[in-house]
Design a binder for these strands. Structure first.
Length: 505
RNA sequence: GCUCUAUUAGCAUAGUGGCUAGUGCAUCUGACUUUCUAUCAGAAGACAAGGGUUCGAUUCCCUUAUAGAGUACCA
């Protein structure tokens, strides 16, 4: 295999790119980059009835956000364009004709209604209607009509499709990089439509022609295509082309394990299924990882582990490391259940890696949106809070008290922490704080703890009410860090406020 | 129904024809002179079932069960 590796991601623009599609794109990207190859984007819009405005833009934006851009595709035209199948429309007919010429395909004039009736009829008898060798001579097609009659029908403008003539009795040997060898009896294959009556090819024809013309060496796609593999291999053979290598990726299943992850599952179960937010034409909204505050690196890492693993215990991989470690052979065969909790874990890991200064800037923007302004050192606050934050919004969740003094106290905690002797103790804390010039957390800690130990008071009696006074709840980072950041005046003011509160109880 | 595919703890998975089947998430316990949804330490928990092959199978084969995909003039 000396030729350059070329892979493609070929979504159809019927809506936002689902997480499973993104994973397929990612694996294609990783494989291409690992082998120094090209990653192409091809838009499969042969079904014009399902075209959705904005879907293509969405796909491109999503790939860019995740940092897995394509090398060739719409807007990045190279030698194999155009990259939208609708723009390649006039190309396909000749290939369908060639197949008819070589006896591998035929014209069929059965209407959709007729076929439907056949299917219903069979179903009623508990059988399945398959359009193939066993009945094609009883149906309306160029195999039963004379050449003249067929031509006359076409000239008369009768609608027709072109069907592939599947071999009758052959055992096909199929190979898949992930799944290995498989056998399929061609006798159970049906004569798939290759060319539709609307003048467009079906996926099956278009994808073989395009993959060939675009010099695709490896087809990496979802498992839902596995049943079509035999047809595709047969098609390559009929054309006399060398087939690319195939790899079928395992499905992504719902967290509950039943069925593949669908677009509505996410919002139903409280996690995004799409990389970017999406609004449908009729106003329905789907959340996206970007808008929910995820870092693209975290999403990529999470996606990479959906059906693949490096075989080591390392779990955190940046893009370069993924490219380095990725191997199709290590992709799993079984479906991968999607775990939103693990996704959060990845996000948490990546948030920890973000530089505090940068995070502080993001946090500042977030505060701005909430109309909170502050003179406090945000970098310091971020350093303290970050460990327990998964998203930037958690910084607010964890640390809003830095910016807003508590005006009430968590009832349960107050019950436990605020006792009759508390004001007296807090008064002492105030005087210690007041007398402290070096307002570092270490120094404050030393002073206050020194006093507690010396007087043999018990830490709980002081630390709990102190925290409650400063925070309003039993949460947040180390109490002395909070004091240090809040500063002397604010700290004392909060403590005195709490003393008042207790007195009035 | 038919075709194809899969099945290691609650979940994602690693791994092996033969010592205590590894890791992460979740769970539980302890510690951090006592906030915790954080951190640290520890614990419990699995090879779907039944047949073979074999000295020996979670690992190979068959059957069953379960799950999934496909079965369109959709991709």
């Amino acid at each position: 295999m000396s030729q350059k590796v070329r892979v493609r991601f070929a979504p159809s623009p019927t809506g936002p790119l689902h997480i499973g599609g993104v994973r397929t794109a990612l694996f294609n990207y990783l494989f291409a980059k690992k082998h120094g190859g090209d990653f192409l984007l091809r838009i499969e819009d042969t079904d014009q009835t399902r075209y959705v405005e904005g879907a293509e833009t969405y796909i491109i934006e999503a790939l860019n956000w995740l940092n897995i851009p394509f090398d060739e595709g719409p807007g990045k035209e190279k030698d194999c364009g155009p990259y939208r199948q609708s723009e390649r429309k006039n190309l396909y007919k000749q290939y369908a004709d060639a197949l008819i010429e070589s006896g591998n395909a035929y014209y069929a004039f059965d209407t959709a209604e007729e076929l439907d009736a056949h299917r219903k009829d069979h179903e009623a008898k508990g059988k399945t209607f398959i359009y193939n060798w066993h009945n094609r001579l009883k149906l309306k097609n160029s195999l039963v009509f004379s050449a003249e009659e067929t031509q006359r029908k076409i000239d008369n403008g009768e609608e027709y499709v072109i069907r592939f003539k599947s071999p009758e009795n052959e055992t096909l040997q199929l190979n898949d990089i992930i799944r290995g060898e498989m056998q399929v009896e061609t006798s159970i294959l049906d004569d798939k439509v290759l060319f539709k009556s609307d003048g467009m090819p079906t996926y099956h024809l278009a994808n073989i022609v395009d993959d060939h013309l675009m010099k695709i060496t490896h087809v990496i796609r979802g498992e839902e295509w596995l049943p079509s593999l035999a047809l595709h291999v047969l098609l390559y053979r009929a054309f006399g082309w060398e087939a690319p290598k195939f790899a079928h990726l395992p499905l992504i299943l719902k967290p509950t394990g039943n069925g593949k992850l669908s677009k509505r599952d996410g919002d139903k179960m409280g996690f995004p299924v799409f990389p970017l937010q999406w609004k449908t034409a009729d106003g329905e909204e789907f959340s996206g990882y970007r808008e929910d505050g995820y870092l693209p690196e975290a999403v990529v890492n999470m996606l990479a582990f959906l059906g693949w693993n490096p075989g080591t215990e390392q779990e955190i991989f940046n893009l370069e490391e993924l490219v380095e470690a990725f191997e199709l052979e290590r992709v799993h065969k079984a479906g991968a259940k999607f775990d939103p909790e693990k996704t959060k874990w990845f996000q948490h890991q990546y948030l920890q890696k973000v530089d505090d200064e940068i995070l502080a800037k993001d946090f500042e923007d977030y505060l701005g949106e909430k109309n909170v302004s502050t003179a406090l050192n945000l970098t310091k606050i971020v350093t303290l809070l970050k460990e327990r934050a998964t998203f930037v919004s958690d910084l607010w969740e964890q640390g809003s008290f830095f910016f807003e003094a508590p005006d009430s106290y968590d009832a349960k905690a107050a019950d436990k922490a605020f006792k009759t002797e508390t004001p007296e103790l807090l008064q002492k804390v105030v005087s210690i704080i007041n007398a402290t010039e070096d307002f570092s957390a270490e120094n404050l800690s030393e002073k206050v703890k020194g006093w507690i130990t010396a007087e043999n008071i018990g830490f709980g009696k002081v630390m709990m009410p102190l925290r409650l006074a400063l925070v309003g709840e039993m949460k947040g980072p180390d109490v002395f860090d909070i004091l240090s950041i809040l500063g002397k005046d604010e700290s004392i003011s909060r403590i005195e406020k709490a003393m008042h509160f207790i007195d009035q109880k």
